[in-house]
């Protein structure tokens, strides 16, 4: 058997994205289960784009646990990878099998998309959603250096986005927004479409958000992508002010924010967990016990840094704002 040249986990992610349009080979239909009760039109001016990113999280977490326990450079892991190829021949995806065995919080992460769309609807936005156009953004191909594959993938994705004829693409994940707004236009002839994050769209109509009856201060964990690449940080604070919630600032925030550790989750899961724990400690130093973020990977990575005995409660901005509509 020839020596494996790059860590197998990278190969898996690449193969899955290129072959299935999703890092963990989740099917579009499965990705879209959150939307079935919303009966959203498939065509419209504002296209909601999930990219399947929140849906990936429970699987990624489980996969990371597998990687942490089974050294990704060991013979056992190589054997598992070989097994994967055999299983793939039979049409079943191996990662999904071992990931599913440990999958938790699936309902929670899937529902974030649902809640985001409801919030947008309540604010008066007419949102459309097409599960077939909700292909993964390709951010991991970019991050991990699969740039040749990325170019092919970008063409495929661009064609799908173009066909929707939407004027605005609203991304719930800042990683997807970065790809559509900053990366793809450099690579290919990307459609002339407004790319906006969920946060920015909510910010435009923040005065219509119902006030929240939340007495304790919260602390914002700025996502690196959102704050640095997309320049969105004040918007989060403005939204909280508009719902009468007091936020406190950690020592490192906005463009100086500390990374959640998420990017090294696949290759260096132990380091990722330590980095997450340290960030949680920074956030906890403010005295706030509720941490809010607006990035699926930050949410997932930071969760791994929260000790079981900790009083810290971690929520996505979507979950937090949705409280106002649950009354």
């Amino acid at each position: 058997m020839p020596a494996k040249k790059i860590p197998p986990v990278l190969e898996i992610l690449r193969d899955n994205i290129m072959n299935y349009g999703n890092p963990l080979a989740l099917k579009p239909k499965e990705n879209a289960t959150w939307a079935k009760d919303l009966l959203l039109p498939t065509k419209g001016e504002i296209l909601f784009y999930s990219g399947g990113e929140y849906q990936l999280l429970p699987y990624i977490d489980s996969l990371v646990k597998t990687i942490t326990y089974v050294d990704s450079t060991s013979k056992i892991f190589s054997w598992l990878m070989e097994a994967r190829k055999i299983v793939n021949l039979t049409g079943i995806n191996a990662e999904k099998i071992y990931a599913s065995l440990l999958a938790k919080d699936k309902a929670r992460f899937y529902s974030i998309n649902y809640k985001a769309v409801v919030i947008l609807q309540k604010l008066g936005y007419e949102v459309c959603y097409d599960s077939q156009s909700d292909l993964y953004s390709g951010a991991l191909l970019y991050e991990l250096g699969f740039w040749r594959d990325l170019k092919n993938y970008a063409s495929r994705l661009t064609e799908i986005i173009r066909k929707t004829q939407a004027k605005t693409l609203v991304c719930i994940s800042p990683h997807a927004a970065e790809m559509f707004k900053l990366i793809y236009p450099q690579l290919i002839d990307f459609p002339q479409i407004e790319v906006i994050t969920f946060i920015e769209l909510v910010w435009r109509k923040r005065e219509f958000l119902p006030p929240l009856n939340f007495d304790n201060p919260v602390v914002i964990h700025d996502s690196c992508r959102l704050a640095r690449e997309l320049g969105v940080s004040q918007e989060l604070r403005d939204i909280l002010s508009s719902v009468n919630v007091k936020s406190v600032e950690p020592f490192r925030n906005r463009e100086w924010t500390t990374c959640c550790g998420g990017p090294s989750k696949m290759l260096f899961p132990q380091i990722s967990k330590i980095v997450a724990g340290r960030r949680i400690a920074e956030l906890a130093e403010t005295g706030a016990r509720t941490v809010l973020t607006s990035c699926p990977y930050c949410l997932s990575a930071l969760q791994s840094g929260v000790d079981n005995s900790s009083e810290i409660m971690l929520e996505d901005f979507v979950e937090f704002l949705y409280r106002g509509f649950e009354k």
């Binding site: 991050e143 991990l144 690196c224 640095r228 690449e229 490192r252 463009e255 100086w256 924010t257 500390t258 990374c259 550790g261 998420g262 990017p263 090294s264 290759l267 260096f268 380091i271 980095v275």
Partner: peptide, 11 residues
Amino acid sequence: YTCLRCGRCVE
């Protein structure tokens, strides 16, 4: 591959 590409070093 260890780099988080978080970008705080740039700041």
